[in-house]
Design a protein around this nucleic acid. Structure first.
Lengths: 199, 199
DNA sequence: ATTTTTGTCTAACAAACGTTAGTAAAATGA
DNA sequence: TCATTTTACTAACGTTTGTTAGACAAAAAT
């Protein structure tokens, strides 16, 4: 049982850390803040984690892992480019909405990582972005997407689907799947080749 | 001349502060960092500004002012909704690319403001967002935009055009006007009513 | 029953923080 | 030239920071 409750405590600390880092920013959130939220003393945290930055690292890299796993899942399924893009967006939105705190840290607080973890993290992010580029390139070949600056499009897409985390509320009108569909329509409307009659 | 050089020094401090706040985040950037960058001592800054937060406030509210001025300029010109949206996007992108540091602070570091300035700032942001909502509503009436969740669309648009600040480089391939046009096309493609034959 | 492990505590540390006080130098105006 | 204003300096302050050391209690394992 010590094993189980230990894991649970460790996870509890990380979850509260993510919440706090999101709320106040990594630099402004103190170990005493975190401890208070957990009902313990700051020193006690060091029994579970060896530094404040280790908490940040865990959150950032765990999320990076999940995003990349999603991307691989998409490419394992042999759909056309449009379906791949729609699935990518759906998984992305679901991951974000199901882990809002950790996602916020992954999306904005990673800048506080110090080398060499910082470079490693950037590399993983790049890896994920590349998956989207591949999908868009495929779509261009399949002639279902407009010819466009691929990198430009990927960044625009990601910025849009990442921003979900800043307005999504669990008790809101739309559920994640609906949000993903709306976003996909919005984005694809901008990508899909129009009938020649209007412009 | 004392007047002039005083203003210039004051501006120099704010500009370097914006650069530093963007680079390290407000909380992580120290007054000693800022002083070192200026070639003076930390205490000397307090002759020009009474606190660190005053610097943040100046950057945030100066930029808010500029964004809102832009929005008013757009509404003073009586174009149709599509032209209004295109102009809004253009002015937005130009403002961002011409003030990358201050824009980054305006976009992300405002969370470090403390009350009551924080509430005031949020109010100004809301004011700016509302201008976009009005344009989209007009476009719906004029029947040139698809019927869509207006708030959803505005947030998607803003997230996309704000994200420009994270990848734009002054020496890059595209100039601000070109970026604005591409973004407008991308966004409008998603908004504009399609010919009925494709979906 | 006793040892070991686990989780927490109190106390304190050195370093870094924003900021203030008082002083000196440099620029400006008479 | 002298007085005034502007700008910077040195030195230090009181806090807050992340973190460590060592003790103590509870739980688990032997």
């Amino acid at each position: 049982m010590s094993e189980l409750s230990s894991i649970s405590r460790k996870e509890q600390i990380v979850e509260e850390a993510a919440n706090l880092f999101r709320l106040k920013g990594y630099a402004s959130a103190t170990m005493r803040d975190l401890a208070a939220e957990l009902g313990i003393e700051a020193a006690s945290i060091y029994h579970h984690y060896k530094s404040k930055e280790e908490l940040l690292e865990k959150i950032c890299f765990d999320m990076a892992d999940k995003f990349i796993t999603n991307a691989k899942e998409v490419n394992d399924i042999y759909f056309n480019a449009e379906e791949k893009l729609r699935l990518s967006i759906k998984l992305h939105v679901e991951l974000i909405t199901e882990n809002q705190n950790q996602s916020a840290v992954f999306l904005s607080e990673w800048r506080s990582l110090s080398e060499p973890k910082l470079s490693l993290f950037k590399q993983l992010r790049q890896q994920y972005e590349n998956q989207f580029m591949i999908i868009l390139k495929d779509g261009e070949k399949e002639d279902i997407f407009d010819h466009t600056d691929i990198k430009f499009a990927v960044l625009s897409i990601l910025s849009t689907i990442n921003f979900v985390n800043e307005w999504y509320k669990v008790d809101g009108k739309m559920n994640p799947a609906e949000i993903a569909e709306k976003l996909s329509n919005f984005i694809l409307g901008g990508l899909r080749k129009k009938a020649t009659l209007n412009r």
